[in-house]
Each structure stands twice: as C-alpha cells, then as structure tokens.
Design a protein around this nucleic acid. Sequence first.
DNA 1: CGAATAGTGTCTGTTAGACACTATCGC
DNA 2: GCGATAGTGTCTAACAGACACTATTCG
Lengths: 305, 305
Amino acid sequence: MHFAESSASERRYLPPAVAVSTVAFALHPPEGAAAGAPDAGAPAEGRETTAAGSVTLWIPLVRRTRPPFEGRWALPGGPTQWDETLVDTASRTLHDAVLRPPGYLEQLYAFGSVERSAEAQRLVTIGYWALYGERDLAAPPSAPAGQGAGAPVGRTPVAAPSRGGGAPGPRWDDVPPQSGPRQEGSGGPPGENDPNVAWFSADRLPRLAFDHVDIVEYALWRLRRKTEYSAVAHRFLGPVFTLAQLRSVHEAILGNRVDPANFRRQALAQGHLVDTGAVETGTRHRPARLFRFRAEPEDAPRPDR
Amino acid sequence: MHFAESSASERRYLPPAVAVSTVAFALHPPEGAAAGAPDAGAPAEGRETTAAGSVTLWIPLVRRTRPPFEGRWALPGGPTQWDETLVDTASRTLHDAVLRPPGYLEQLYAFGSVERSAEAQRLVTIGYWALYGERDLAAPPSAPAGQGAGAPVGRTPVAAPSRGGGAPGPRWDDVPPQSGPRQEGSGGPPGENDPNVAWFSADRLPRLAFDHVDIVEYALWRLRRKTEYSAVAHRFLGPVFTLAQLRSVHEAILGNRVDPANFRRQALAQGHLVDTGAVETGTRHRPARLFRFRAEPEDAPRPDR
DNA sequence: CGAATAGTGTCTGTTAGACACTATCGC
DNA sequence: GCGATAGTGTCTAACAGACACTATTCG
C-alpha cells in the first residue's frame, strides 16, 4: 500500500479513509456462538428469553485487539477496499464476525467527523444495520472472506433500499488507515468460537468503543420506526410462522406488549401474510395457523443500485 | 497534493475519494439569480408560480465545465477537504453556488459504487438535501468560501438531524480526485450572475450529469415524507406566515391540493404554530392571521454531532 | 373438564376527508 | 352589496385500542 510510509503529520492531508460499521440484530445468537455477559469478556449462558418470558434482540460485537479502545467491544466493521461497494464492505466485515451472511442489510447514516484529524487520518464512517433471521442463523458457519481484493462475500442476500429519514452515526475509527483486510477483532484463528466475537443482548451491552453506542441507539430507533410503517419483523423468523411469533418479534423490537386481537387484524389487513393452511404442532393448546410472507412492491425510490 | 503524480492504473488502489452532492430546494430563485429554462443554457423569465397559480419548488444547479458530462447541469457539490466534516463540505459547496447559507441541511444517503473503478479513482458520494427559506434567500450574496483549508463557511445555520429511512444516491463522479477546492462549475468569476449557476423548477429540470436525477428524485421523496410526519414546510417561509401560505407550500411539495379547512385543523393541532395576533395586510379580502413557528423537541436520536 | 392459547365480535374515542356555512376584509 | 378568502361546524368512514367472548386443542 502506498501510504504505509506517510508520517502522521502527512496523513492529515490524505483523503479521508472510508470505513463501515454495522449493527446486526437477531432474536438469539447462532448455535454455538458465544453469548457475552455485559462486562465479562467470557461467554455466558444466554438464550432468547428474558425475565417476562418475552424475546430480546441480540447484537454481535467484536473485541478490539489494539488501541485505541483495546479490549473494548465494538461493532463489526472495517475500511472499504478499492473494489468494494459500501454494502459489500458491510457484508464482508459482518461475515467475518458472524460467519454467515445477514438476511437484510441497509444503510443507516454516514458520519464524517474531523475529530482527531490532527493526530490521525481523517475518517468517514458509514453506518449500516443488518438483520439475521432464523433461516440465516441456521446456515452453517462459512469461512471468513479473507484476503485482499478477492471477490466480495458470495451472496449478499439482501441489499435493501430504505425509506425512513437518514440519521447519524458516530465517527468510526477502527483500523489504522490502509491496514490489512481483516478487521479489528481477528487476532486468533477464525471459527465459530473466536473469543473476540460474541453476541450481546441489546439491552445489556458492554461499554463500546468509539461512539458505537450511538450507532446502536440509532439503529434501534430505525428498526422501531421501520417495524411501525413497514414489514420487517417477519425477517427475523423462518419461512412460516404463527401470528403469535410475529407479534412477539414486534414486542421485542418495540419493547412493549401488543394486543393479540388488534395485532392480528392489523397484520392481516396489510395483505402481506398468506395463510399456508398448515398449523403449528407440538403445543399443548389450540394450534395456531401458519403464515408466510408475500413480498410486495416497495414504495421508496431505490437507493442502492 | 501527494497523489497528483499517481497514474491512472495506480489510482485504482487509492482509498476512495469522498465527495458530496446537494439538492437544495426553494420556493423561487434568489433575487437576481438566473432562472434556467429546461434545455436552454440561458436564464429565462421564471418566478414562483405555475399554470394553476400554485407554487413550485426550485433547485440550484451548476454547469460542468469539464468532462465527463461537460456542459451538462449538475448538483452543487465537491470533494471533502481534510479538515471538513461532511456537513461542512455540503455547506461550503452549496454556498459557492448559491452564495448564501441554507436554512436547513440534512444528509440523504451515502453511495459508494465501484463503477468505473478500473479507469478512475474509487468514489464515495454523500448526498445531502437543503432548504432555502425566504429569510435565507433575502440575505445578500456573500463571497464564495474560496481557497484551500480555510475555515468552513461561517455559520451553517442549520445542520439538522433526521428520521426517515436512509436511501440511495447515485455514484457521484465529479471533480477529478484531489482537484482544487473550487468545484465544477466555476470557470468564470463569482457573483450573483455566474452563467454556470442557475435555478430550475423541480418539475422542469434539464438533463443532469451522472445519476444526479436519482438523487433529486430521492431528495424529493424524502422531502415529501418529511412534510407528512414532521414540520419542515414552515422553513420555506419567513418568520411569520399565514396558514394559506403554509398550505401552499405543502401543496407545492406534495403536488396536490389540500383542503384549507382540514389543513388548518391539523396544522393547529400539532401545537407548533403560535398565533402572533397580527394579521396580513394589503389583501383585497379578509386578512388572515399571522402565525410563527414554535420549535419543539425532536424525537429522533440526533445523528450529526 | 380445565388450562391455555387461537381467533372473533363489539364498543369507544380519535382522526382524515368532504363539504356546507359563517365571518370579515377591500372596493 | 359583491367578490374573495378566512375561519368554523358537522357529518361520515376508517381505524386504533380496550376488552369480552367463543373456539379448539392437549392432557
């Protein structure tokens, strides 16, 4: 790389580095992945339920192995490479941490602060948010994307448009300018149990590096807004699901109880759900009908193309 | 500049250049500014009204003076400088074209395409949208921000948060990597009548360079969404205004008629409007009450900080 | 049958939209 | 008074939220 040799004072004048940070959500960590406790570095027993029996959102984090913020947990991410689009970068860095491609990926906001520009290269960070559904987590872990200018991660299953208002992200800061392709938390060998990658419950996050808390905050806000006016919740579930499941996803996202009767009516009124005719089995009460989702035309001008 | 000497083939491996493009809206061009006709390069008589007597939105454009797309009109914009935040860049480049700071400025979407990377340096473009109110247009033109690393344009009156969903912009492409600070359409001397800057009616735009049409499209969509759930329309007007004026702004943005009675109720119900007690004068019918806007707490996590 | 959840019916309060009607100005 | 727009009242249909009630399964 050309710039390796430029001194710190010279780096001030370099063009800004472009990096990506992604907040990914899932209803629970993938099978076999580490579930982090708030402040312990070590995994803890954690599954998808909380006190009240309601579902929570989980977020994958990566532990930084070098300054600044060495040892702190941070969002998966890293610098863009010359042959990658921004989504590709998000996808690749996320894959490096989670070992699976997300089911949904959407841009959040671009933040270009000038902070610390006297000491380090200027940095522009593009925040993304992603979503892992049951389907996605079930997929067996695949090898990290790896080196250099290789093709961006195979299939980025969903590179989606968006609609809500754009918003902020904090300045990124990871990865020294023009460092190698693998991002921060990759000291050890890859594999499902990399000690530097863990999933945390969204309401019990450890202290994060940089202003990653703000990105998470914003991503959550966006996710909530989006579940209100759009159909995203179903993406957390498998191909077929009951209305109760869908509702509990809504409850997890919005953080409050939702009336089953009213939810049912609204959900069905949207016209997105198709009754498969099949019913749930294995319950010890009246089985619920299974629905699947019917894709419908987006109404937003499509950003990513 | 370090990179001036790097060859085209070397540039492929440079970090992406970061540029900004801004879609600015106003109810009419500033006094004395050129109003462009759809395809003529020359100004045409144009004021704020259209066929049906309704108001239209106007957008400032800059004519490119070098390839690619030489001669075409494009959005104001340019590359970020090492000491500028993204908003600053938007603000500065917009100021260079319009000679006034906007009343509102918000990020739209970041687009990082890899297209043409084989021939030119990789480019990441951050789209912004801005708004000039009466107040802002009334301000006398000030000199362009000018050279090098000078302080970013004095006051960027409003660097605002946002809420809607993020969305797309096309790849930018202007300005050769690391070119001088002044952007594209600045061949001639500055001043209110730079032949390479003109305002166009949003529904009669000329052919634009790059995919700037898409950015405009998206900005319009965002503006519409935002007027629906938030209070932005008032920013197009002066400090006090009648409900009829506010309504006609809504009509201009949404593109359809709005019932005066219902609009009034809704507008007042929001609680943002304060009756000043004063009334309109100079009409030849019953004068309307004048209102002013009362700022209220935002509910979106604030992105820009 | 009892526990438990699925699914339906109904009532109430709020709101968007349509539109008739009254008020108040200049002339 | 007339023309014109400001501003109010009212009716209707749609809808969200609360909640009672019925249906269907397991054990």
